[in-house]
Each structure stands twice: as C-alpha cells, then as structure tokens.
Design a binder for these strands. Structure first.
Length: 343
DNA sequence: TCTGTCACG
DNA sequence: ACGTACGTGACAGAC
C-alpha cells in the first residue's frame, strides 16, 4: 500500500523542477531533496521512504534467512559482475545499511558468536590507488606515497591553495571530483552533486586534468586500447568485452568509454581483494579465526577474543601485501562485538 | 516481467 | 538538441 508521490507532488501541489524519466517525472531521493524548499511534503516522503526501505528490505526480511545454526548464510556469485567483483544474494549481505544512524542499527543486529568479535579490515582508497598505479607518476602517486590526505591534496592542486589552507568546502568538492574521475564523470553530474553551476563544474574538471595530465592520458589510453582489442583488461589480465566504442550514437559511445575507463580500475581492485582472500585464508591456518564476508574492499572475520591482535596483524599484512603497486596498499581495521561498531 | 527506487562499494 | 558517473540485488507496484 503505497501513495502515489508523483501525482500528489506534481499535479496536486504543482511542484516544479523535477527530473524527467521515461514514464514521467522522477520522485527519487535527489529530486525530492531539491523540492524541499518548495513544500514540506518532499522531506516527509524522504523520511517515509528511508523507514519503509529499511523495514521491508532488512527488518522484515533478514530474520527469515536465519538458519538452524542461528546464522545467516549468504550466497556469493563469482561470475555475475562484469568487472570481476563478487556479488552477494539470498540475502545480499553486501548492501547492509551503514550510512545513516537508523541504518547502522540494522548492521548492529549482526552479533559475533560468544567468545568472539568481528574484525573488519578494509582497503583505504583502493580504486584511486589503482588509478595512481596506472598513471605511474604525478601528484596522485606522490600523494599516496607520502601518506597524505588525498582529497585535501586534490583540492590543493585544483584550487591552487596550500594543503593547510584548503577549506572544508573545497575538500568536499575535491572528494566529489576524485569519486567521479574513476567513473568518467561529466560536468553535468558534478554540478548536480555539488549544487553549483555547470560552467563552474566544468572549470573544476578542466583544472583537475590540467594538474593531473597522467590521469587524462590513462583514460585516453584505456579507451584506445579497448577500441583496438574489443575488451578491457585488469592489471592481472581479467578481460571484459566492451562493444559500442565505435557506436555512431554519441551517448552510446560515451557510455562504452566510461566502461573502458572504469572496468580496469574496479576490476583490478576486485582482483586484489580476491588475491588477499587467498593470502588471508593461508595466514589464518592454525588460528580460530574465520572469514565471514567480503564487501568489495572489506573483509569481515570472526575472531576468538584472545586472538584479536595477532590475527589483526596477519590479516592487515596479507591484504597490504596482496599486490605490489606503484603506491602502497593501506588497510584500516576495527574490532567490535557487533558489526555496526567496527569502524 | 518491467520500472522505479534505494541499499551497498 | 540531447543526455548526462561505475558495479551490484531486493522490494513494491504496475502491467
């Protein structure tokens, strides 16, 4: 039983500025957020959506997956995601909430077995490090080798201010730029995300590529190579066929180019954590610790309380040593009796 | 079965 | 003038 937000918002209330979709006007979260200034209803719909999403997908559904052993066992597919990532289903444990306080309460429902705790170990900025490796030199490489705050450094380069003088607003913009670079973003999307004029977003992107020419060269090279070969390739040789790079249609061609840019990055990161899982498994032999989950750049283990520090050291070392890139691989870790508390 | 939406990295 | 960031899976509702 669901209201019909679109009719109420756009026909009865006459709110303006919604994004168009195939079937009419969108009521997605980004659109509703922008409509907040016109009326109190969009905000209420957003709150209602968050609550019902959490209830239907997690609170109501997950208890039905608890088995005779009192635990939930997910299913991992190794041959579904085109980039080489794993995917998780029935239930999906790679999309358990964490971004909101209400969501984190769901993650907190996952409790380690008596006498054990969860150990979570995640790669810091692994996709940007892979990109830095592909670039070989420049501020991205320097920055990771020096252990700097990568977004602060990007802001410093793009906005031409000393790192110590980067404002929180500039750092936020740089973070969005770094995030988007990996996906082959355009000015339209960056402008939308940062709520700035499109011309200003374009200036940011131009400024970025002026300071990071090696990133531009990587992107051009990745497209050219994929166009010649018909596929992209990760650092470890995983291939993804990419049709459409010669499409006459500009939008189709641009979409294929974004895939050619992103797949070697996301796919190499996927290869690295798979190698890490093998190394972690070997490093854990003789201990009472068990690997429970992989969430793309994170491994979650269950560890006897008395073994936490030695296991943590082994896991971090195995993950950091899984591949030798031109920049260090850094792994952060946390320990807690509930999943929501590990970071 | 398709679409829109939204949870995660 | 057009469309507009990568990869997934689950749910509700429309058809």
């Amino acid at each position: 039983m669901v209201p019909i937000p679109s009719q109420v918002l756009y026909e009865r209330l006459g709110l303006k500025g919604a994004r168009k979709i195939k079937t009419g006007l969108s009521t997605d979260a980004d659109t509703l957020d922008k409509l907040r200034e016109q009326h109190p209803l969009p905000g209420a719909v957003l709150a209602w959506r968050e609550a019902t999403k959490l209830k239907s997908t997690y609170v109501d559904a997950l208890p039905n997956w608890v088995g005779a052993d009192g635990r939930i066992h997910t299913h991992y597919d190794q041959a579904v995601a085109a980039t080489g990532r794993l995917s998780s289903s029935d239930p999906n444990l790679q999309n358990i909430p964490i971004r909101t306080d209400e969501g984190r309460r769901i993650r907190d429902c996952f409790v380690a077995a008596p006498g054990t705790v969860f150990l979570s170990a995640d790669y810091s900025q692994i996709e940007l490090r892979v990109l830095a490796h592909h670039c070989g030199e420049g501020p991205l490489v320097e920055s990771f080798r020096a252990g700097e705050d990568i977004h602060r450094r990007t802001a410093s380069e793009v906005f031409g201010v000393l790192p110590a003088l980067v404002s929180s607003e500039q750092r936020r913009a740089a973070k969005a730029i770094n995030f988007g670079i990996v996906y082959g973003m355009g000015a339209f999307r960056l402008a939308n995300d940062l709520r700035i004029p499109r011309a200003q977003a374009q200036a940011y992107i131009d400024g970025y590529f002026a300071r990071y020419p090696q990133v531009r060269a990587y992107m051009d090279g990745a497209c050219a190579r994929a166009r010649e070969l018909g596929y992209s390739e990760t650092l470890f040789g995983r291939r993804r066929p990419i049709p459409g790079l010669d499409a006459g249609n500009q939008a189709d061609r641009a979409a294929a180019e974004r895939i050619a840019i992103n797949s070697p990055i996301q796919g190499t990161a996927a290869d690295i954590i798979k190698l890490a899982m093998i190394a972690v498994d070997a490093a854990l032999r003789g201990s009472g610790a068990r690997l429970l989950l992989q969430v793309h750049d994170e491994l979650v283990l269950e560890v006897p309380e008395g073994e936490v520090e030695p296991v943590r050291a082994r896991v971090v070392a195995a993950m950091q040593g899984a591949a030798a890139l031109a920049v260090p691989l850094v792994v952060d870790s946390g320990v807690a009796p509930r999943w929501g508390g590990v970071h």
